[in-house]
Nucleic acid binder design. Structure first.
Length: 423
RNA sequence: AGAGGAGUGGCAGAGUGGUCGAAUGCGGCGGUCUUGAAAACCGUUGUACCGCGAGGUACCGGGGGUUCGAAUCCCUCCUCCUCUGCCA
């Protein structure tokens, strides 16, 4: 959520940024927010002076009662009734304005970083660089959805039986490959200085709001109604929320965490013929990296996180490219996002396997995640996160790219984890 | 899940209707003393909003209520502890 103070003091920059996102009626919405804020201030002023008066009278009554001057006290009491009802009305008015303002602010996305290209769809994303080469597959090479059947390592039909579409069952070497990748990614993240956490995979409403999934993506999360909890769409939610309502001390920064969790996404409306096999699932595994740092350090941190993701893909020997997301494709909460895509050679398609974002203060403002600077001034921190990495599409690419007529080769770095070098 | 108890500032812990944003201790910060440190002593030490400022308002787990006045009384929710039950 943007700070209202940001909207007031940097209105032009906000307008320019939101236009890049094609956010409709920018000026109108911002003016409305500013007007509501003014209304909020004035209603607080009248409420406060009203309360101050009432407090003074109450004290006076207290003093008189103690002095035994009952009658004088009673006389003053009669004066308070009016103040009381006025206070109630003023408080309601103030709450109402605050709610309206908050509801409006919830609808405003983050201001993109100046380097974010304008554009409408993923077609307009900027390819920053492409690393590695596409493997040359043998004549009979097939997509991963055929390979998983051929080698009996991932079973979609069984998943459909016990749960539904998009919930595959990993079997034998498929299950082992998945576990190996999780361990490999966690080990690499820990080696890069991210401390490991295992968070809950259901979160409450407050957590969903704080990282921005609510109310924006309400329909995309699975909701556990009898407990009013949400299944996490990404470990970003619980891990970032570890720092909700926290004022950290400067020497704790930067905070770096990694965590492995399953992720759940309803993917309402995004299913189609182009989505096959492991390309899109309702439940998948992911290792996430999260960072909290000072404003002046956050873009360096973003770079570091991107380099970490790149190193993973290089170690796995996968061709990949990095995209700078355009204004139309960047997430609601993000200021700058780099997507990583691996080339899936049999599908002849680029698959997104990581998204690394800097949210600047957008999440921190909702989280109330702050620190005290050297002048003892309390400042919002910046939050960042990235996938490192999401498993299913990595598995798809490994299977497709490393297939040979007599088996699938396992990348060398994984062999110590899998215990086998071929499927 | 049932019965009982409890949630107060960074921590510990007082306060059960009136000048309480809240005693006291510890911790933190600043200072005196010291060659330096420790000890001792003195001072200081929450957050948010409004206001140019003086200052004001709110916050004692969350929400609601009673009252001129609530940390204190009532209702409700949440969390923790103890006992009983159940269980991976």
């Amino acid at each position: 959520m943007l700070q209202i103070s940001q909207i007031v003091t940097e209105k032009e920059r906000v307008i320019e940024g939101l236009k890049k996102r094609n956010f409709p009626n920018v000026e109108q919405v911002l003016d409305q927010a500013i007007a509501l804020d003014e209304k909020r201030k004035s209603s607080q002023q009248s409420l406060d002076s009203n309360l101050a008066e009432a407090n003074a009278l109450a004290k006076e009554i207290g003093g008189l009662m103690k002095a035994g001057k009952r009658e004088e006290a009673e006389a003053i009491k009669s004066k308070t009734a009016e103040l009381k009802s006025a206070s109630k009305e003023l408080a309601e008015a103030k709450d109402q304005v605050e709610k309206e303002l908050l509801a409006l602010l919830y609808t405003i996305p983050n201001v993109p970083h100046p380097s974010v290209p304008s554009g409408n769809t993923d077609e307009d994303n900027e390819v920053v660089k492409t690393v590695g080469e596409a493997p040359k597959l043998h004549a009979g090479a097939v997509p991963h959805w055929d390979l998983i059947k051929q080698y009996d390592i991932i079973d979609f039909d069984l998943g459909i039986k016990i749960t539904g579409a998009g919930f595959p069952v990993y079997k034998g070497k498929g299950a082992r490959l998945q576990r190996s990748l999780v361990n490999f990614f966690l080990d690499e993240a820990v080696a890069a200085g991210f401390s490991e956490v295992q968070p809950p995979i259901m979160v409450n409403e407050a957590s969903g709001y704080a990282t921005g999934q609510l109310p924006d993506k309400e329909g995309q999360m699975y909701h556990v109604g009898n407990e009013n909890l949400y299944l996490i769409p990404t470990a970003e939610v619980p891990i970032t929320n570890l720092y909700r309502d926290v004022i950290v001390s400067e020497d704790q920064l930067p905070i770096k965490h990694t965590g492995f969790t399953p992720c759940f996404r309803r993917e309402a409306g995004s299913w189609g013929a182009h989505v096959r096999g492991l390309n899109r699932l309702h439940q998948f595994d992911k290792v996430e990296i999260v960072q909290v740092c000072k404003a002046e350090d956050s873009y360096k941190a973003l770079d570091d996180m991107c380099n970490h993701v790149a190193s993973l893909l290089e170690k796995l020997g996968l061709q990949y490219r990095i995209l700078r997301l355009c204004g139309g494709d960047i997430g609601f909460t993000s200021a700058l996002t780099f997507d990583f895509e691996v080339y899936s050679a049999a599908q002849e398609k680029w698959l997104e396997v990581s998204s690394v974002s800097n949210f600047e203060t957008f999440q921190a403002n909702r989280l109330k995640l702050r620190y005290k600077d050297e002048n003892k001034k309390i400042q919002l921190l910046h939050t960042l996160n990235g996938s490192a990495l999401a498993l299913p599409r990595i598995i798809a690419a490994i299977l497709e790219n490393n297939q040979t007529p007599d088996g699938i080769n396992i990348p060398e770095v994984l062999v110590p984890y899998t215990g086998f070098d071929k499927i």
